[in-house]
Design a protein around this nucleic acid. Structure first.
Lengths: 180, 180
DNA sequence: TCCGATACGTCAACCAGACTGCCGTAACCG
DNA sequence: CGGTTACGGCAGTCTGGTTGACGTATCGGA
């Protein structure tokens, strides 16, 4: 704890700058998250859905055949909160529930073609927002962004990100081995 | 639009990687924001307050004597949504409303000493979270983080951040001119 | 001086999305 | 066979957002 940001002599500008830097980061998180999520809201609203639906679609799309319990662990909400959202998505044909083969208690979740299409529409809105930011900031900045964001999230979330990344690498290898 | 991320020959790994990069950023935003805001929740709960109260405290603290309308513009919520939160904060003695001198219609908002103390407790929780991430990532990464986050938010938010930064620089100069 | 615009507060009603507690069923597994 | 797990559902509550309408004090220009 007492290694960096030294004891700071009273009235030190050093500590003040450091504190201002942290407070500015609070602002950054608030505004960036607000405007980023906001990007998809237009589409969601015209379908009578909310951000909760988008989050579910996103993580189901990224984790095909994900069991309900795992989705709950990612979203960190209760079964009942997810139930309403998921119910709507299934009812409207965006998400399919298939019984697990290895464990038949599980209802594995996946996007239907319609769900994939909707997720893609939502994704595109956020993509233009992010792509512009990435392009303007440059590759080294993006790597820095990634590192800081990783550091902010908790250990479980970092582990999830790592697993997702490994999965991606594995898929890339498969794709590279069977070129079009 | 069609400048970077070239037309991408069908099946190109380049586009896929790019898309995966964007989707990973969606994850980053979700997890980082979730865990960051979560850091202050323990304190908030024991006081029977929510994140809405924290946001108000934060932006009032950062903008002493801010008029209500300006706070509304920052938070992007309605007058009525703020009213409940603000009412509670005033009632419990965390926020003071003083009549504007130049324009007596305005109720300028500022933190009371109790409000400053509370905001500091909340800030500390988030500070340890952010400071660790900043320390582990390193200074260049932090600058990259800042650039990307700035790029994600909308023009109005960027303008606000710029104004806040200028204000900070102005204060630093004042402090430097009158050393302790 | 008066009148429209502005800053703010407030009442009522509504809704999304989170929560808790509880119960039931099916399936797994030791 | 019995405990645990995965999942679904019901009932009720809370926060924090929304709209619409109305009232009042103040500002500022014609």
């Amino acid at each position: 704890m007492a290694d960096a940001n030294a004891p700071a002599p009273p009235g030190s500008t050093l500590l003040c700058l450091r504190e201002e830097e942290i407070r500015a980061a609070q602002d950054l998180l608030f505004f960036a998250y607000r405007d980023f999520t906001n990007a998809a809201d237009v589409i969601l609203e015209e379908l009578g859905m909310g951000r909760a639906h988008h989050r579910a679609l996103h993580f189901i799309g990224r984790n095909p055949a994900i069991p309900v319990t795992e989705l709950l662990a990612i979203l960190r909400i209760t079964k009942q909160s997810l139930a309403r959202v998921l119910g709507a998505l299934v009812e409207q044909g965006y998400v399919a529930q298939i019984q697990g083969r290895v464990d038949r208690r599980q209802r594995l979740l996946a996007l239907t073609p319609a769900g994939q299409a909707l997720e893609r529409r939502l994704f595109e809105r956020q993509r233009v927002c992010l792509a512009a930011a990435y392009r303007d900031a440059g590759a080294p900045a993006v790597e820095g962004f990634r590192r800081v964001m990783r550091g902010i999230m908790d250990e479980a979330a970092r582990a999830y990100m790592d697993r997702a990344e490994q999965e991606q690498i594995r898929q890339d290898r498969t794709q590279a081995a069977r070129p079009a």
